[in-house]
Design a protein around this nucleic acid. Structure first.
Lengths: 186, 186
DNA sequence: CACTTTCCTGACCGATCGGCCAGTCTCTGA
DNA sequence: TCAGAGACTGGCCGATCGGTCAGGAAAGTG
């Protein structure tokens, strides 16, 4: 589709298109032929630049996964009251920065867990979920955290509103949903 | 896996197993062989009972889709203030009744939309989303509704807590998240 | 000019996909 | 007893999957 205009490399184009397709149709639902057709190159070209389909996925999700690990690490030293607000804003920003990748990662977790490349992703989302819950172990708080976490990721992919508005709305709904003390004020 | 014990018919077993697999690995990620192996029958048996893989999916999701249509119809005559609470409780109950099917339907919407069997599903979820938002057209309210809607469906599939506790937690987080007036009290 | 490297491709491979069909069971009613 | 119906299966089909390979076009480099 896109002629190589000497600006964007074919490799980057493959990653961009693959992110779109994976987010839209799922990892299994996207074939190498589909990606190649959209990029405008041969299927063999994909496998020249990448070791395989899973390598595309791995390289695609690496930056977002790294930022997620950074966020979780940054959240760790905070106390139980401050961690929730920091987690919300940090995660919303992270997801807005990597809309497609987030959808791919979160939507495919049950299947990707078996692969060692994504084995370290589950404890990260667990830690983030705990931060959302304010480190509470109450079932209600945990469930609320899971709802917000998955809801944000699922919604953000096909929202075409401007990021600022989207960010404000997401942070708002997350704050409200995770409010365990009814007497807190903004 | 399950010998036909004259109690459950092979046909029902196929539907049950297919629901599990589709919810876990996705529609594309589940092959007829996978389902047949788990059921303990031949792949040809699946195609004896059903016209094709898509027919299994259609029959699988039909009851939940019908109940969703019923819920939306029941919500229609309510006024803007009552519709939100009714939508929350009605949808949580619906999803708890059809955990796997809900995940299959909601998770596969972008891909299923092209098929006519699921074409009438999008307006239903849109209507439900509007009900969640209290029929408000404000972006923040719409986004919050989407987050709650998708979050509930995504979470409920792999939660093994007892339904009563889960229901209370889900209704609670939904109420909080969709609260547009900050001075409302429970 | 020749030589190397980079980028890319068509042709091909084995495996698996969804689906089809002829035929084999078992059970039932006349 | 036997004909028919329902349930089920092995074997096969064409298409598509992810992946391999030998080689060509283009661009430096000496």
């Amino acid at each position: 589709m896109l002629r190589a205009m000497a600006r964007v490399s074919t490799r980057d184009e493959i990653l961009r298109v693959a992110a779109e397709q994976f987010a839209h149709f799922g990892y299994k639902g996207t074939s190498l032929q589909d990606i190649a057709a959209e990029v405008g190159c041969s299927k063999a070209t994909l496998l020249y630049h990448f070791a395989g389909k899973d390598a595309i996925l791995a390289e695609l999700t690496a930056p977002a996964a790294r930022e997620l690990a950074d966020l979780v690490a940054r959240l760790a030293p905070l106390d139980d009251t401050a961690v929730q607000a920091a987690a919300i804003e940090g995660f919303v920003d992270l997801v807005l920065r990597h809309r497609r990748e987030a959808k791919v990662i979160y939507g495919g977790i049950p299947q990707f867990l078996q692969e060692p490349a994504f084995a370290d992703l589950l404890p990260l989302t667990d830690a983030l979920c705990a931060a959302f819950a304010g480190r509470s172990t109450e079932p209600a708080a945990c469930i609320a955290a899971e709802v917000v976490l998955s809801g944000i990721v699922t919604v953000v992919i096909d929202e075409e509103r401007e990021p600022a508005e989207l960010r404000a709305a997401l942070v708002g709904v997350a704050r409200r949903a995770l409010l365990t003390r009814p007497d807190d004020k903004d």
